[in-house]
């Protein structure tokens, strides 16, 4: 099967609606998190969910489109990080395909792997486009590492990894719990959910 044929196969109407809904989920969970004043973002929960339910390509597309739409409606800076969101979705989909979302503790490992993918894409953008600084609280971490004598690259790597680790592990755990809680008639229609729920 050619790549474009695979795409058509994978992208049923259900998958397309799932992606659209997940984009809105990404954009609204921030509201819940700030309501509870929690130190995490969870803004890629929809992306990770699509990765688990519909595979890496759909997951990546969800992340990419979320940040592009954010860029259109809030601030163009979000669009600059759309490749990062894409990487998160792809990573989540791959982790699910290789059975890393079967139990809660595997989901924690998947969260760490997603953090790694996130860093691989986010570090170059932060470093080369923004000179390592994005004007947020995470910059304190970067300056601390610089003050310790690390080079700019090392400081940005440490900052990106630590500021995302808790968030991505929490995201992976919640996504795992959601997929487990979905009724069978819904997961049956999702092309990739079997990799997650079959262990149950």
């Amino acid at each position: 099967m050619s790549f474009s044929q695979r795409l058509k196969e994978d992208f049923t109407t259900t998958t397309i609606v799932l992606i659209a809904i997940a984009i809105v989920i990404n954009m609204t969970v921030g509201q819940v998190v700030s309501m509870l004043k929690l130190p995490i973002f969870l803004d890629s929960i929809g992306t990770v969910l699509v990765g688990l339910l519909a595979g890496p390509i759909a997951g990546g597309l969800t992340g990419l489109l979320t940040n592009l739409i954010w860029g259109m409606i809030t601030s163009p800076v979000a669009a600059a990080f759309s490749p990062v969101a894409l990487a998160i979705g792809v990573a989540a989909g791959l982790c699910a395909r290789y059975g890393l979302f079967k139990t809660w503790w595997l989901a924690i490992i998947a969260g760490v792997i997603i953090t790694f993918f996130n860093a691989v894409v986010a570090v170059p953008i932060r470093l080369y486009m923004f000179g390592g600084i994005t004007g947020s609280g995470a910059d304190f971490m970067t300056s601390y590492m610089l003050a310790l004598g690390k080079d700019l690259f090392g400081s940005v790597v440490v900052t990106v990894f630590t500021s995302n680790l808790i968030d991505k592990v929490a995201t992976a755990l919640i996504a795992w719990a959601i997929v487990k809680a979905l009724p069978e008639r819904t997961t049956d229609r999702m092309p990739q959910a079997k990799y997650v729920v079959s262990a149950a």
Binding site: T12, I21, V29, L53, I178, T186
Partner: peptide, 24 residues
């Protein structure tokens, strides 16, 4: 506050995903 996350997120996420079938 972390434990309150579930009761607030689950209805939102599960409800929207279950509703996908209808929309498609």
């Amino acid at each position: 506050r972390f434990t309150s996350l579930g009761p607030l997120l689950f209805p939102l996420l599960i409800g929207s995903i279950v509703g996908i079938e209808q929309r498609s």
